[in-house]
Design a protein around this nucleic acid. Structure first.
Length: 412
RNA sequence: GCGGGUGUAGCUCAGUUGGUUAGAGCGCCAGUUUGUGGUACUGGAUGUCGUCGGUUCGAUUCCGAUCACUCGCCCCA
């Protein structure tokens, strides 16, 4: 092995893989556009405070996963671990409260200093959307419908499951937290060590525990639904009714909680069983207080993010790449370059090697999956003609050089 | 951050119970075919056996450390 290793948890995406990656990204963006979303591009780093304040001081992302460093002027900078905080910051600093509601799509790299695993990298990529300024549960329905559309178009409808829950409004959440804590405290000593810690920091996460003992205790725990205020209950009811009406299959998972502190009301996750320990492929929720918490005008929001690498692993082959035309010079390479250039100007995808005899060039044309070879032979040149060879069928014909673009245009 | 597994050719992997020139398939290069690829046949090149250290007459093989990958925990996309 060379000593020139990529940084742990980072990856080079060579053309074959990046094509798959882009395909996932583009499918998401294309669907988002149909729902009226426009792309926002925020910096991949922000002042550390942007993330520290919004994600919750006790969240794992903030306490142990951020790529934080001091820049040359001593400012504490953090590589973004997720997209929502940056978009919220852009909303505030750009004074976008004037243009609500706002529908934003984003994509790009995110960074978390974790131990790499299947479907988990230190630099990974997300696509995501945020819908800002809409209090109504219609926003939740539309945003989830978009998620479902994206997954369906990637051919994943049969591979994922939508789980949904409500975290209620602040009042409901507070009430539930109290009843849950009271219940769990009875079993304090039987809980796993992790969960005993969670009891103080974030008892809701115990609902999610993978520890078998915890699971048994959680089975008897009070559910969020019973602590919901009538308003919160109705909100959730509308969301689930809406999904039903749009024919989007889901299951209600009362134990679904989200890791980041800013969520309220609707929380959802599309999960799969085919990615090992990383089941979540797309997840999101509502965050009505986030922007106010950051110091902006109170603006409700809802959004989701999906891991591009995780989606890529689930997706079948992306549509085939465009098949090129191979230009094969037999003598005058500059003249051949000129022909290649003509074809490219006419919109063709053209391969032309930089060296080698005819045999070698033909072999390369084949490897490049070329559909046709344009052979510029000396005999033909005297007749001001070229040979077009069909590399699939094996037949070939001679055509006048002057009408080459036309001929190829007709063949392709 | 914690625990398990694995590092041999460009890739996938075999192998050496410690001994001189370390193997296969795929891929690559060349030829059969000096104006024709994809198939077939023939031949060829390629390894600090992850790195550093220890034990030994001798280490790719045993031991330790380290790095990387991988699976899981925590957490998450």
């Amino acid at each position: 092995m060379s000593s020139l290793q990529p940084v742990r948890g980072t990856h080079d995406l060579l053309p074959e893989e990046s094509r798959r990656h882009r395909w996932v990204e583009e499918a998401a963006f294309a669907a988002a556009r149909r729902y009226g979303f426009g792309e926002v591009m925020t910096p991949i780093f922000e002042f550390t405070e942007v993330f520290a304040r919004t994600l919750g001081e006790t969240s794992d992302v903030v306490t142990k996963e951020m790529y934080t460093f001091a820049d040359r002027s001593g400012e504490s900078i953090t590589l973004r671990p997720e997209g929502t905080a940056g978009v919220a910051r852009a909303f505030i600093s750009g004074g976008l409260a004037q243009s609500l509601p706002l529908k934003l799509f984003y994509r790009g790299p995110m960074f978390r200093h974790e131990r790499p695993q299947k479907g988990r990298l230190r630099q990974f990529h997300q696509v995501g959307v945020e819908l800002l300024g809409v209090e109504s549960p219609l926003a939740d329905i539309e945003v989830i419908a978009l998620a479902w559309r994206v997954l369906s178009e990637l051919g994943l409808a049969g591979k994922v499951r939508l789980e949904i829950n409500t975290l209620g409004d602040a009042e409901s959440r507070e009430a539930y937290r109290n009843t849950l804590t009271a219940y769990l405290s009875q079993f304090r000593l039987s809980l796993s060590e992790d969960s005993r810690n969670r009891l103080e920091r974030n008892p809701l996460r115990i609902l999610d525990s993978k520890d078998e003992g915890d699971k048994r205790i959680v089975e008897g725990a009070p559910v969020m639904t019973d602590s919901l205020t009538p308003a919160a209950r109705e909100f959730f009811q509308t969301v689930t009714n809406g999904l039903g009406m749009l024919g989007i299959p889901f299951i209600i998972n009362p134990r679904l909680v989200r890791g980041l502190d800013y969520y309220c009301h609707t929380a959802f996750e599309f999960t799969t069983t085919s990615l090992g320990a990383q089941g979540t492929v797309l997840a999101g929720g509502r965050y009505d207080e986030l922007i106010a918490t950051m110091g902006g005008p109170r603006t409700p929001g809802i959004g989701w993010a999906a891991g591009v690498e995780r989606l890529s692993m689930l997706v079948d082959e992306p549509p085939a790449a465009v098949r090129p035309v191979a230009v094969i010079p037999m003598g005058d390479e500059l003249a051949a370059m000129h022909v290649a250039e003509r074809l490219r100007r006419a919109g063709q995808t053209v391969e032309m090697g930089f060296s080698g005899n005819m045999k070698k060039r033909m072999a390369r044309a084949n490897k490049a999956n070329a559909r046709f070879a344009v052979i510029l032979g000396e005999e033909e040149a005297q007749r001001r003609a070229v040979t077009i060879r069909d590399l699939d069928g094996g037949s070939q014909e001679e055509v006048p050089l002057a009408s080459l673009e036309e001929h190829l245009g007709r063949l392709l």
